[in-house]
């Protein structure tokens, strides 16, 4: 039943002029779960979140958030959600505390509650010392934390996080992951979009891979990895120019499925560590020096490559990019 899920979307279509940003997208986020929406730039992630957050109207299809129809009951939807976008949308001239107060007031919460909740969020997000400084003096990580804290002021049961860690340094990213995990532990439902596979792998129970506005795969991280098979062998060469020679030399092992990445060559293998020896021999025979050789489980990156034919962080050519679109019709 659509109304029981935190998010339930069916056949979402969104066109901007003659560009189809969403092409019949289905999405279910069960209550209390973290679903990661994974896709390259322009695949429709942000458009999906924007429709669910009532910022855009779908061209076709329907969506329910917390049981409310996003187009007909948008006010109820807005009461149920918190939204943190790709850009820390806090007022940079207001202090941390003032930002929280503003959002609390706009959620129509009592001043007493806003005060209590703000103090709690400030200390939880480690912003107490910076609470009375204008947000423009904050680091990128602090702004994101303030942004997230602002979304949490009314304790929404459903949180939309649109690329919450894009542009953050690794330490801030880890910090934010910790926060998100704690929120989930408290029962918040999270829909997370990301282009970082590691992030989806770490946070999401369930991963929905989309490309060109459609769901192309769906499952747990393990399910998805299993879909593309077993171990992969990764070879890094001393001389990267010999990549295609290496590919030819390793053809008996890899077959035709090997991939040349930026700095290495990888392909599916079977037979465990025996294959390492075979690969060393083959490359040595071809006179190619090896810098590094590793056998590993597939990552979501591999899943991504095999599903979409391109990497997660590739820029797909315009005009399918929903973010560069004006999206205002």
């Amino acid at each position: 039943m659509a109304q029981d899920d935190a998010v339930h979307a069916e056949g979402l279509v969104k066109t901007f002029g003659d560009v189809k940003a969403l092409d019949g997208l289905d999405l279910v986020v069960p209550r209390g779960q973290v679903v990661g929406l994974l896709g390259p730039n322009g695949s429709g992630k942000t458009t999906t979140v924007r429709i669910l957050a009532t910022l855009l109207k779908p061209t076709a299809g329907q969506a329910f958030v917390n049981g409310y129809d996003v187009t007909k009951q948008s006010d109820e939807v807005r009461h149920s959600i918190g939204l943190t976008g790709q850009y820390a949308a806090v007022d940079e001239f207001l202090t941390g505390r003032e930002n929280l107060k503003m959002f609390g007031d706009l959620y129509h919460l009592t001043p007493k509650y806003v005060k209590e909740r703000s103090e709690e969020l400030l200390s939880w997000f480690d912003l107490v010392d910076a609470a009375d400084r204008p947000a423009k003096t904050y680091s990128g990580g602090m702004r994101r934390r303030l942004d997230l804290a602002s979304s949490l002021i009314a304790k929404p049961s459903i949180l939309f996080l649109d690329e919450p860690t894009t542009g953050l340094d690794p330490r801030s990213r880890l910090g934010l992951w910790g926060v998100i995990e704690s929120l989930v532990a408290e029962g918040t439902t999270v829909l997370l979009t990301t282009q970082y596979l590691e992030e989806a792998d770490k946070l999401a129970n369930d991963i929905v891979v989309i490309d060109h506005g459609k769901v192309i795969a769906h499952g747990t991280a393990e399910n998805l990895k299993d879909q593309i098979g077993g171990d992969r062998l990764e070879v890094t060469l001393v001389d990267p120019h010999k990549m295609s020679d290496a590919q030819a030399a390793l053809a008996p092992i890899f077959g035709s499925d090997s991939l040349i990445n930026e700095s290495n060559l990888s392909g599916p293998v079977s037979g465990g560590s025996k294959v390492l020896v075979e690969a060393v021999r083959a490359l040595d025979f071809a006179g190619i020096e090896i810098a590094d050789l590793a056998l590993r489980r597939p990552t979501l990156d591999d899943v991504f490559l095999s599903l979409t034919g391109h990497g997660a962080e590739d820029e797909t050519p315009a005009p399918t990019s929903s973010r560069s679109r004006r999206g205002r019709r």
Binding site: Y107, H108, L109, T110, K112, Y113, E116, R117, E120, L121, W124, L152, A154, K155, S182, A185, E186
Partner: peptide
């Protein structure tokens, strides 16, 4: 955990 009670509107 965050302890504050239910939001008062």
């Amino acid at each position: 955990t965050l302890r504050t009670s239910t939001p008062e509107a």
